[in-house]
């Protein structure tokens, strides 16, 4: 497609198929990876001041919209409807639009100002805590009284220390014993394989005990109790 620079551009005449976006243009080399966006720094005092001012302006706009709405109602009640109805309707519509926009801006400003206020408050608190001499502060805190108020016995009773120790010890012993058993089981299989090789046995050992139930009961129940 050739373009005449003197010809005015008619947007409607350009179809989607003729549009060439920036992604379609071959670069001839691999595009470098997009740089990560720099981390947004938290709002500071200046931001808080600007956002507060913006909130004030939005509040004023909202107030002006309310005044205009009130004026319109007064005008409607004073002027004869035949004369004022159409122009007042047009104004009313415009005022309603402005009021809606002002309300949305106001809500956004409130959110922004609150965020900035919280950030500034956090910075102030952190700054104050950093300035404090903790050693001196702790010297003035009655630790003994604080600890005396804590129900240590209750806390220890709540935490089942015995159970935790028992569980971990049992688990550890079980794991160790199982490791020993696996080693010796390997030795069993190795020894029997070696003997079978020496004896030139071709068939495998019959190690399966078909009638044995691993999950079965281990205690002999007398016949009269069955």
């Amino acid at each position: 497609m050739t373009l005449d620079p003197n010809q005015p551009i008619d947007d409607d005449a350009v179809t989607e198929a003729e549009l060439v976006t920036i992604e379609d243009v071959p670069l001839g080399f691999d595009a470098p990876p997009a740089l990560p966006a720099p981390p947004a720094s938290p709002p500071n005092v200046v931001d808080l001041a600007f956002r507060s001012a913006r909130l004030g302006i939005d509040a004023a706009a909202l107030f002006a919209g309310e005044v205009a709405d009130l004026s319109l109602r007064v005008a409607r009640s004073v002027l004869p409807p035949a004369v004022a109805e159409r122009p007042l309707d047009a104004v009313d519509e415009r005022v309603a639009r402005q009021r809606t926009a002002a309300r949305e801006r106001g809500e956004h400003s409130v959110e922004q100002t609150r965020e900035a206020a919280e950030a500034v408050l956090n910075q102030v608190v952190v700054g104050v805590v950093d300035m404090l001499d903790m050693e001196q502060l702790i010297d003035h805190v009655p630790i003994d009284k604080v600890v005396a108020r804590v129900d240590l016995a209750g806390v220890i009773n709540e935490v089942d220390l015995g159970g935790i120790v028992r569980e971990s010890t049992t688990g550890l012993v079980g794991e160790t014993v199982d490791a020993l058993r696996v080693q010796v089981m390997g030795l069993d299989l190795f020894a029997s394989r070696m003997v079978d090789k020496v004896l030139r046995r071709k068939e495998l050992r019959d190690l399966v005990l078909a009638d044995y139930d691993v999950a079965g009961s281990e205690i002999r129940v007398p016949r009269e109790l069955r």
Binding site: D178, R181, V184, M185, L187, S192, L207
Partner: peptide, 18 residues
């Protein structure tokens, strides 16, 4: 029993080392 081989051999005849 975590070891799969040991799990498989449960209920079978034990060897001389054990």
């Amino acid at each position: 029993i975590r070891n799969p081989r040991a799990q498989e051999l449960q209920g079978s005849r034990a060897g001389v080392a054990s």
